[in-house]
Structures are given as C-alpha cells and as structure tokens.
Amino acid sequence: MVTLKINNIEAVVPEGTTVLEAARKAGIYIPALCQHPKLTPFGGCRLCLVEIKGMPRPVTSCTTPAAEGMEVATTSPVIERLRRTVLELILSDHPNDCMVCEQAGSCTLQELAYEYGIRENRFEGERRKYARKDGNPFIERDLEKCIMCGRCVKICDEVQGVEAIEFGYRGFDAKICTPFEEDLDCEFCGQCVSVCPTGALTGKLWSKKGRQLGVREVDSTCPYCGTGCMLTYHVKDNEIVRVTSKEDGLNEGLLCVKGRFAYKYVNSPDRLRKPLIKKDGVFVETSWDDALDLIADKLKEVKAEHGPDAIAGLSSARCTNEENYAFQKFIRAAIGTNNVDHCARL
C-alpha cells in the first residue's frame, strides 16, 4: 500500500493504482475523456492533468502511478487553464449540433463544455468532413463527432477481443477505421457505443426515439441467454427506446448484440393481441372469458374421460420463476399429473 496526499486529503491505495484512480477512490473529481475503468490507460485527452510536488510540469494522472509521499493538486489556475484550452481545441473541430445529437444529456464532452462554460471558441479553423456511409444496421458512426479518445478501439480489443477498429491515418486526417474502411462488420456488441464519451457512436435504433425528457429508466434482467446480464430499459410513451447497462451489475455494463440491440420484438406489429380460437381450421378472435372457459371445460373433460395423465404441459425457460412455479403447480395440483417439462434439453 502507498500513502499519498491529494488536495491535502490523505489516500491509501494498493501499489500500482494510478493517481486518477486514487483520486476517484477518495471522492475527488478529475475530468477525463479517454480514461475508462475497464481500459488500460492511454493519456490521450490531456484533461486529467494534475500537478505533483517536485515534478517540473503537469502530468496526466491516468498514466502516473501513485507513489509513497506524493503530494497531488488536482486543480489550480494553471491546470484549469490547460484543461479549458484542451476542451476548446477539441470543440473547435466538433459539430455544435447538440440540439439534434442522440447523446445530448448523456455526453461527457457536452457536460465538460457546460462545466467550463465554453460558448465561444478561440480556435476557428478547418474542420473534418466525413460522409456517414456505414451500412451496418446496428451502430451509427459519426466520425465528425469523434474526439479520438480511443476508448472504442481499446474496448473492442482489450475487452471484446475483436479488434474491429483501429486508428488510421495521421495528424488532422487521423480517424477510427475499420479494415480497408469497409462497413463495420463485427460482433455488434455495442461495447464501443457504451463507452463513447460523445455522440460519435450511437445505436441506429435510437434515432429520434427520445433522449431524457419523458424517458423512464427501468432496471431488469436480459431475456436472452443464461448469463443474466442486468440491463436498463429506457422507456418513452410505452415503447422501449434504448437499452443500456449499469456498471454495478454482474455484467459490469457489458452486453452483447442481442441484449443491447434486439429489443424491438417487444413492440413488433406481429405480437398477439387477442385470444384466438380455431374454428373450422381458421383462428378467430375471442374474449378471454370464452377462451379460458373453453380451456377449463376441455381439460376437465379430458381428465374425466382419460385420466390426468392424458394431459401434458410444456413450460418455458423464457418465463419467470414465479410463472414456472405456478405452471407446474397447476399441472400437478390442479390437473393431477407430473407430465410437465420445459426445453432445458433443447
């Protein structure tokens, strides 16, 4: 363990902890755009600069390991001026279209511009112009909004192990590229979308569906595989408009393509809406009352005529514990047979 002082507050952290992590642990805020707890430090955005006693100039706290006796200042007029300049430089080549941006309200860059009150910009100059032409159906890539923090590149490589994107070109022309600049073709887990600090990466499905106003968040469990990832439905006007995942669930904010992007089955126009009874080979709509009466009568009739073992029930691994419990109890106690199973084997 090493002991250091951050803004005169003593912090004790395990060896190998960075100054930034030590500060966060002590509840001290340092702004950052490229740093992310899941990823190896990069030192790209230069926002996490701090002053350390005995060092001749500010250093990036995300790449500096905490050392015994270190005295760190996370803020000072010099540091703040540097951060402001860095932000202005980033914003000088960032479309000022928060009005229509999907990420407005959940954008780290927007939040920092707000915090530093940056309205005008001293650095007018050339801007990158990129056509949006990505043919994939899941992820919208708006490279003009990209600040080259590299989080997407790192999470795709380090966490997802896919390496679908990389830095390409140099200097002003640098951008995040797919191989040969083809359309993105990957696992579409959307991990990159989840860590993007701007609106450069968003879900195509989210488009114009709602951001924060009138949007409710509901925490639930993913309905797909058995991993049981925790996810958050963003709901507006009785429609799921976005799915995200919080860092404190067992999946630590990670999802796959199904969990993150395959939610539209919920409001599919093909959903069943009314009970159906087959009459002369054709389904006709009916009331719940009639449907349930018919089922109850038929089940009683079969039970009386052929015994309970002529009835069988198939339940579902889709359904909840409570529904499954009630279903088998229905088959066992109400019908009187153990003919109940589900698709565990299939």
Partner: peptide, 19 residues
C-alpha cells in the same frame, strides 16, 4: 454447465420437470 436460456435454471429449480 452454462445454461443456454435466460431462465432455464429457474424453470428447472421451479420443477417444470416431470420427475
């Protein structure tokens, strides 16, 4: 054994099983 479906564990625990 990694369970394939969201609640195959629960459906088994809840005894949607014949035995």
């Amino acid at each position: 054994p990694l369970r394939g479906q969201n609640n195959v564990q629960g459906a088994s625990d809840a005894a949607c099983l014949p035995n």
